[in-house]
Simulated scan of single mutants.
Amino acid sequence: MFRPNRPSRVLPLAGLIVLAALCLASAAQAHRVKVFAYSDTETIYTESNFSKASPAMGAEIVATDAEGKKVFEGKTDDQGKCDFPVPKDAEGDLKIEVIAGEGHQGDWVLTEAEYK
Rank of each mutant, 00 (worst) to 15 (best):
E91V: 15
A53C: 14
S39L: 04
A14C: 04
K95I: 12
L24T: 14
I96F: 08
R9T: 02
A100W: 00
L22T: 12
V35I: 09
L16H: 11
T43W: 05
Y45S: 09
L22F: 14
P55N: 09
K81I: 07
P55Q: 05
T76G: 01
E60V: 07
A66N: 13
L13N: 07
G15M: 06
P55T: 03
K88M: 11
D89F: 14
D65A: 12
S48K: 00
V109N: 15
D107T: 14
A113G: 12
H104P: 06
A21T: 13
D65S: 12
G106C: 06
E47H: 14
E97R: 02
D83L: 03
F72E: 05
Q29W: 13
D83E: 08
E47T: 09
T41A: 04
G103T: 13
C23F: 14
G15D: 06
V109K: 13
L24H: 12
D65N: 15
T76V: 07
T41E: 04
Q79F: 11
I17Y: 05
V33H: 00
R9I: 08
F84K: 07
V86S: 01
G92I: 14
K95F: 13
V71Q: 04
V62T: 05
A20M: 14
F36Y: 10
D78L: 11
K52A: 06
M57S: 06
H104R: 07
D77H: 12
D78W: 10
A53T: 10
I17D: 09
Q105K: 10
L19V: 15
L22H: 08
A30E: 15
T111R: 13
P4K: 02
P85A: 09
V71M: 08
E67C: 13
N49K: 02
A20I: 15
A20N: 10
A66S: 15
L22N: 11
F2G: 03
K69N: 15
G74H: 03
A59Q: 02
W108D: 03
F50C: 01
S48L: 05
K88F: 12
I96G: 00
P7Y: 04
S26T: 11
E67P: 10
T76I: 10
K69P: 12
I61K: 01
H104Q: 06
Y38K: 07
S54C: 02
L19A: 15
K69M: 15
E42H: 04
E73R: 07
V35T: 03
K34Q: 09
R6H: 05
T43C: 03
G74L: 05
F36G: 04
K34N: 06
H104V: 09
F50Q: 00
Y45D: 09
A28H: 11
K75I: 03
A14S: 02
K88H: 12
L24F: 12
D40E: 09
R9K: 07
N49A: 06
T41N: 02
G68A: 14
P85R: 02
D78H: 07
V71G: 03
N49Q: 04
M57K: 06
I99A: 05
C23I: 14
D83F: 06
S8A: 09
F2A: 03
F72L: 10
A56M: 01
L94H: 01
A113V: 13
E73Q: 10
K81A: 08
A56I: 00
E60R: 04
F50T: 00
D65E: 15
A25I: 09
A37I: 04
A53P: 03
K70S: 14
A113Q: 13
I17W: 08
E67W: 15
V71W: 01
I44P: 00
L13E: 08
A14W: 02
D78P: 04
E67G: 15
